[in-house]
């Protein structure tokens, strides 16, 4: 463990006092509780402390929404891949190397000029980890989970998205083990761009459906 904690502010196992070295605030009860639980589970041999560091590193630095952005940009530039992605999202993502926990079965939802898709999990926090990483706090929060299904347009407005008149909304409540990712519309004026250029326009929120892809003018400003 001692040689593998670059991402943490301190070494949890060597820390004997109840203070956070960096901030000089007393550790919260919850932080203390987690530390005590970790110490117990390590002692009982139920978790490998080095595995904990590996898990954190995996989701902090290696699995995140840039994976999804690469998939979207590829779909915008490769009609065959787009068709494969819409037919079986998990399978197509796998061909680009993105697969695993919480993305085993995934469907990709195509936004069109007529229909805007948006994803929520009202019961917990279901989210396609291999392509988007771990969900942001707001996605797991009570207000989003409560309102996405009965006030989606109000929610979109909070995210600065106003749909044109006549655009229908489809809200997908992930109540089972299918995971959903939105394929946003390619911004106008980006025809002929390379996949690498387009990737920069694909935001995490545009793949949840609480955003749209970035405007190329804005992106270059």
């Amino acid at each position: 463990m001692a040689d593998d904690h670059d991402h943490h502010e301190h070494d949890h196992h060597d820390e004997h006092d109840h203070h956070d070295h960096d901030h000089q605030h007393p550790m919260s009860d919850t932080a203390l509780r987690v530390k005590a639980l970790e110490s117990l589970l390590v002692e009982k041999g139920l978790v490998d402390p080095a595995a904990l560091d590996q898990l954190i590193d995996l989701y902090e630095t290696r699995i995140g929404p840039r994976n999804g952005a690469r998939i979207v940009a590829r779909a915008w530039t490769d009609p065959d891949f787009r068709a494969a992605l819409l037919a079986n999202g998990a399978e197509a993502a796998r061909t680009l190397g993105y697969e695993g926990r919480q993305g085993e079965d995934m469907k990709v939802l195509e936004n069109t000029p007529e229909t805007h898709n948006m994803v929520v999990c009202t019961l917990c926090s279901c989210y396609p980890w291999p392509v988007l990483g771990l969900p942001p706090v707001w996605y797991k929060s009570a207000p989003y989970r409560a309102r996405a299904v009965n006030d989606p347009r109000g929610v979109l407005e909070e995210f600065g998205v106003r749909l044109a008149d006549g655009v229908g909304i489809k809200v997908w409540d992930s109540t089972a083990e299918m995971r959903y990712m939105v394929l946003p519309m390619q911004p106008a004026g980006t025809e002929g761009w390379s996949a690498e250029q387009l990737e920069e326009l694909v935001t995490r929120d545009s793949m949840i459906g609480t955003g749209i892809a970035r405007d190329p003018q804005e992106a270059s400003a």
Partner: peptide, 20 residues
């Protein structure tokens, strides 16, 4: 909902430990 424009994957070190 008040979405922040950017945020870390884990907001506190204990969140990362609880997750792992």
């Amino acid at each position: 909902i008040d979405p922040p424009s950017d945020e870390p994957v884990f907001h506190e070190p204990w969140e990362a430990r609880a997750f792992a």
